[in-house]
């Protein structure tokens, strides 16, 4: 089965910040926070195409997002902070610090059409 595992890292993006201010219910905002940045080689390995819907799953949940190729390192996947990414991390997993694993949650990514 095609797919790839690695660490999810949540980040700020310019568009996420600007669109958030226009309204968190707007499609532009929701699109941006559902856009995953991934290394092209990882994408090839997982048999995914740019713009394709992919399923990201962690031990705590799963989301469907759009992947785009980016100059990020291999096995590191970047999602803007927000309600989408927040379905993949857990408040029960903070090592007693009160801070969830927003900068390194173990996830698996696979093309969404294979899921069905």
């Amino acid at each position: 089965m095609a797919g790839i595992s690695g660490l999810l890292v949540t980040v700020r993006t310019g568009k996420q910040g600007a669109e958030m201010m226009r309204g968190k219910m707007n499609p532009e905002y929701l699109d941006e926070i559902s856009t995953l940045r991934i290394n092209p080689d990882d994408m090839a390995e997982a048999q995914m195409l740019p713009g394709q819907k992919v399923k990201v799953s962690s031990s705590f949940g799963e989301v469907t997002v759009t992947c785009i190729a980016s100059d990020v390192p291999r096995k590191l996947f970047f999602l803007p902070v927000g309600p989408v990414a927040n379905r993949l991390v857990s408040g029960s997993d903070t090592d007693g610090t009160g801070v969830p694993a927003w900068k390194g949650e173990q996830v698996t990514i696979e093309p969404a059409d294979q899921v069905q």
């Binding site: 968190k24 705590f60 949940g61 902070v81 927040n86 379905r87 029960s92």
Partner: peptide, 12 residues
């Protein structure tokens, strides 16, 4: 603040 957007889903 906006916990519906900021917090992990299972927490919020």
């Amino acid at each position: 603040t906006d916990p519906g957007a900021h917090l992990p889903a299972d927490t919020g």
